[in-house]
Amino acid sequence: MAIRVVSGRGHQWLLTERIGSGSEGIVYAVDDPRALVAKLVPDPPDREAYRRRVERLVRQRREPRTVRLLSGSPTRLAWPMVPVRTVLGGGTDSIDGYVMRDMRLAYQPFTHLVSPAARRAFLPGATWATALAAAEALARLLAELHAGGYVVGDLKPDNLWVDTQGRVGLADVDSWQFTDGREVFPGRMRTPGYTAPERIGPVGAPPDSSSDDFVLAVLIHQLLMSGLHPFTGHPADGGDYLSLDDNLLQGRCRAVDRTSVVLPRSAPPADLLPRRLASLFGDAFGGTRPHAWLWAEELAVARAAERLTVCAVQKLHVYTIERPWCPWCDQAERGMDSYPGADSARGAP
């Protein structure tokens, strides 16, 4: 397999292997000395609109708001660099897409930090401090892109990247909602478990910075709670479990009402959070969503060295000084060690 794509200026690239496929597009490795990948979107709902969308994003790379977002190393965003289309087929049959930076060079998939099993395998040195760092980096990135007038819309683990230091990257920029001053390019993708309540259902509301802020809180909860989704749990009223979104719509959430759900005994303890962050989660899932910048500020406070302590028994157990003893040891005693370390058999899958 070697698909060839061409840019508007006639530059050709050879796409080699398929490295991922998402809800709309498929990502290929690119044969190029720079670390690049290409995303092809076979069937956008409106081909012309999709082309314009990619062209505008590429043009906006030069605008000050975007230049700021793209500054720093490693680059936090897999911004579209060049629009391309497939060479064969031609005309209406060719497939559109774009070339972007290969995030795999600097980052790992976000789930490697979130899911306990993947963390053991890929980021065995990560601690709760890494999770706090990633949460702050994510909140800061989202606050900055909101300030730039961008809305992510489909914020979810599959679009996110993380490194060993807790730095965070974001891909799938072509699904964002933005405007070029004349035309609004709407965000319309939604992912179960990562959708604000007003966007769930057959006629969901369009995304805005507030719906992003809701999903940000979901992701921060997962980071700080060793992967636990905030709407995890079997309905306490004895009814059937249907889905995370159903729990969300019915207000079943441990962070808001501890009696609303039944969780496995081995779940991370609810009281492992600093009080201030616990209260922000209550707000986020209870109705008044904190802005991304507020999360960033509070997370910066919570992760300051003097606010953290290391467990005397297990050096990968890092927790807030507000808690008198180690929450991760508590969890380990109930059958699941979220941060077991490479040399420990506890918590092995």
Binding site: I3, R4, R18, I26, P42, D43, L88, I95
Partner: peptide, 15 residues
């Protein structure tokens, strides 16, 4: 399935 099929056909064309 349709998206997958389209990409498979494309990859075959370039083979």
């Amino acid at each position: 399935a349709a998206r997958q099929k389209r990409m498979d056909e494309l990859e075959r064309k370039f083979r």
